[in-house]
C-alpha cells in the first residue's frame, strides 16, 4: 500500500512542478470547444429546429459537446501521463523502483492512479469555463461526475501503460498516441453523435471505452429525461449493443472491467521488465 501511495504521490508532485505541461494541455480542449462549440452549434441547432420544430426549442449543442470535451481531456491526459513510465525507464529511475521490494502490481496500480488523478484534475479545471460558455449544469451533477471521471481516467491510462510497456522512446509513444487517440475521440460521440455509423465503424464505436465514458458523463451532467425523445435519439443518447439499450450501470461496469484488465497487463509487463 505504501508503495502505491509513494508512486502515486511522486507522479502528482512532478505534475504540479511542470507548469508548462499543466497549461499546455489546455490548448487542445479549448481549440475544440471553439471549433465545435462556436462553429458547429449554430448549424446543429438550426438542423434540430428545422427537423423537429417547436419540440427541440431550448436545445443547446454546446451543452452536449462540453462533457465530450472533458472526456477527451481525460483521455489525452491519462494516456500522456502513462508516458512517465517511458521517461522513468530512460532516466534510469525505473531501475530504482524495480529493484525495490514493491510488488509489481503496486507499481502498475500506483502509475494508474497517478494518471487518473492528474487527468481528473485537468478535467475539473475545465469546469471553470462553464460560465464563459453560457452553460449551466447543476453543482450536484458536477460533483457527481468527478468520481466517474476518475474511473474513466484510470481505465484510459491503462491504454497508455500498455503502449508505454511496448515502446522505448517518448517520440515513438507520441506518434502511436496520435494514431490511436484521434480515432478514439472521433468515434466516441464526444463531438458529434455516432448513432448512425456504417457497420464496421459501429463495431469500433462499441468497443471504444470512451464511447461509454462520454455517454455516462452526458447522462450525469445533462438533464436528459426532460429532453424530447426525438432529441435524445438524434444526439445518440441510447447506445445499443446487440439490439439492446445499455444502462448506465452496465457502462460503468464495462469501464471498470477495462481498467482491471489493463492494470493486469501492466503488472505482467513490469514483472517481465528487468532493469
Amino acid at each position: 500500500m505504501e508503495g502505491i501511495l509513494a508512486i502515486w504521490q511522486r507522479d502528482l508532485t512532478k505534475f504540479f512542478r511542470d507548469r508548462a505541461r499543466l497549461f499546455g494541455s489546455f490548448s487542445m480542449p479549448i481549440l475544440f470547444l471553439l471549433i465545435f462549440g462556436g462553429g458547429l452549434s449554430g448549424t446543429m441547432e438550426t438542423m434540430m429546429s428545422g427537423g423537429f420544430g417547436e419540440e427541440s426549442s431550448g436545445f443547446n449543442y454546446v451543452e452536449f459537446v462540453f462533457p465530450g470535451i472533458v472526456a477527451m481531456t481525460l483521455l489525452m491526459t491519462a494516456i500522456f501521463s502513462a508516458m512517465s513510465v517511458i521517461e522513468d525507464k530512460n532516466y534510469g529511475y525505473m531501475k530504482e523502483i524495480l529493484v525495490s521490494p514493491i510488488s509489481r502490481v503496486s507499481i502498475a496500480v500506483g502509475k494508474m492512479l497517478g494518471a487518473a488523478t492528474v487527468s481528473t484534475i485537468q478535467g475539473v479545471i475545465l469546469f471553470l469555463l462553464i460560465p464563459f460558455l453560457g452553460l449551466s449544469y447543476s453543482i450536484i451533477s458536477l460533483i457527481q461526475v468527478i468520481p466517474f471521471m476518475f474511473l474513466l481516467g484510470a481505465a484510459l491510462s491503462g491504454v497508455g501503460l500498455l503502449f508505454a510497456s511496448m515502446i522505448k522512446s517518448t517520440q515513438g509513444f507520441q506518434l502511436i498516441v496520435q494514431i490511436i487517440v484521434m480515432p478514439m475521440i472521433f468515434l466516441s460521440g464526444a463531438l458529434f453523435p455516432v448513432s448512425n455509423m456504417p457497420g464496421w465503424l459501429d463495431v469500433i464505436v462499441k468497443l471504444n471505452p470512451v464511447t461509454y465514458g462520454v455517454d455516462v458523463m452526458k447522462k450525469i451532467m445533462i438533464d436528459v429525461d426532460s429532453l424530447p425523445q426525438t432529441v435524445q435519439e438524434t444526439m445518440g443518447l441510447h447506445i445499443t449493443v446487440f439490439g439492446r439499450t445499455v444502462s448506465v450501470f452496465e457502462e460503468i461496469l464495462f469501464i471498470l472491467a477495462f481498467a482491471v484488465i489493463f492494470v493486469a497487463i501492466a503488472t505482467i509487463s513490469f514483472k517481465r521488465a528487468h532493469a
Binding site: 505504501e2 508503495g3 512532478k14 532516466y91 529493484v99 525495490s100 521490494p101
Partner: peptide, 30 residues
C-alpha cells in the same frame, strides 16, 4: 531485494525532486 542496496553505474535519481524527496521515496519503497 529488501536485503540489498544497489548503486548502479548510471544515474537513477529523480532530477525533478530534491535530494530529501528522493530519499523519502526510497524509504517508502523499502
Amino acid at each position: 531485494r529488501a536485503s540489498i542496496g544497489i548503486i548502479f553505474q548510471e544515474n537513477t535519481l529523480d532530477g525533478k525532486l530534491t535530494a530529501n524527496e528522493n530519499l523519502k521515496l526510497h524509504c517508502r519503497f523499502y
